[in-house]
Amino acid sequence: MDKLKETVMDWRLHLTVLAITILAELIGIVQIPIGIGSILLLPLLYAFVFGLIINPHVFKLAKGWIREREVQTASPLIVIAIMPFIAKFGTIIGPSINQIIDAGPALIMQELGNLGTIVIAFPVAVLVFRMGRESIGACFSVAREPNIAIIAEKYGLKSQEGTGVMGVYVVGTLFGTFTFAILASILATTGAFSIEALAMACGIGSGSMMAACSGALANAVPEMEEQILALAGASNVLTYATGLYLGIFVALPLTEKLYTLLGRKTDDTPMTGESK
């Protein structure tokens, strides 16, 4: 019960979030046209940035209002705060069930597209950046919680593989919403992919990234909003269900194999430290 009391009593934290929410919603959605498309800035992105700006761990100057206590209390709240949003997505998927069944094969097969991390990021990590075994942890998946669990169990988080997965996890935590919002809004306006395909790709396995991604997409193509949200939500649920198994049985063994193939057997030049 101590945890409950402490959380509820931390009025400083909740008032701060209230102020941030009000400010972010007052600014609203901003659209910035760029050459090949347009970038959408969403209130949820401002909220994250405002949170960072007054976080003393990020900016030393911010010390004072937010203390260690608030940082500690805020951490477990993130998972809980996203839950009503997940419920809302369920209510978008339900009425669109027939469309989702129609998209069935594409929806299931695109889960394999998550192996794209190995295709695009792994060669750069090993061949260009000459990274050691941390490239395995960094590139075998999009590094969300289930993937961290896989690495933690197999190698331990203090291993080189662990450093890799944690590095991508943290960068994803910091910049994931931005990256996916920008990717989705640019690709939506270029017309290289159909909107349905882009919506399915938004199911990354993280509530907030899916929110940013599908939000940007729905704002770029407002007439397809319901369909976009339904497909993104369904794909995200599917990723929650399959991501762990894809990681254990396909992605990680494949990355290991590629690592040996690329001729770097044992490596004792971890990239951590040299980049100081």
Partner: peptide, 23 residues
């Protein structure tokens, strides 16, 4: 972890998105 891991992380995100969209 430095800038290399940041670049890799962005490539990882682009990879999963493009991979899924293409399939």
């Amino acid at each position: 972890s430095g800038w290399k891991i940041a670049v890799i992380a962005v490539l990882v995100m682009i990879g999963t998105y493009l991979g899924s969209a293409a399939i």
